[in-house]
Nucleic acid binder design. Structure first.
Lengths: 112, 112
DNA sequence: TTGACAAGCATAGCAATGCAAGGCATAACA
DNA sequence: TGTTATGCCTTGCATTGCTATGCTTGTCAA
């Protein structure tokens, strides 16, 4: 199971990223992320829904209740302009850290 | 400035990784990480020292007080076996998330 | 010789928050 | 009619992050 800090750091960027695939609803986001990560990332509803609410309050995403084909009601989320901007920033920050880590993960240089 | 979640998620792996370069002390770790990140990652002493203490308690690292050339006392840390193991795991987890994110960051496939 | 700054380590304390647990409703199926 | 999967939501409090603060020693300038 993933360390909780890593889960915390990746939740918002992952939600934003998955929504670039098109609108989606909470329950399906959990499954989509599980699928993309090969089962490595397992979100709970208790942690995701509050994050979605917060992201909506921040105008990163917007929601709409709709009937699914199944007759069931679902709350679909989609990206807003602010969300796309936030995603670009998150991506940049992630890459900053990633590049710093990968520098250190190179095989030790024998000279320099 | 980096989002605090990202800082939290990367602190332990960064400390472990920097220590693969050789032993080092707290104050210098802050500067080394600032340097490696091109100034993007700015740690404070108040967040780093407690992390170092925790890592030592967990046997990931060990410490030794020594006099520096300057005459000043420094607490040098170095990796322990447990720490190398932890680093391998942290690295794996980081890559799991990174790969999931980069899948989503590919240019949108027009077909599939 | 004093005072200001950099180097260096440490932790108390409490505001902020993560998320397990629990709750509710409907559909499908046995 | 009982169970499982789908689907959304929130309370509550234990845990934790980190700001703020404090201490020492060395150096350098005025």
């Amino acid at each position: 199971m993933l360390a909780k800090e890593l889960v915390a750091a990746s939740t918002v960027p992952l939600v934003l990223s998955v929504l670039t695939e098109g609108e989606n609803y909470g329950y399906a986001l959990i499954q989509r992320v599980r699928e993309l990560s090969g089962g490595k990332i397992e979100w709970t509803e208790g942690m995701l829904y509050p994050v979605l609410h917060w992201m909506e309050k921040e105008d990163l995403i917007e929601s709409e209740w709709r009937d699914a084909e199944t007759g069931r009601k679902r709350k679909y989320y989609r990206l807003r302009k602010e969300g796309r901007k936030a995603l670009r920033e998150e991506k940049q920050q992630w890459m900053n850290v990633h590049e710093t880590l990968t520098k250190l993960w190179q095989p030790n240089p024998s000279s320099t």
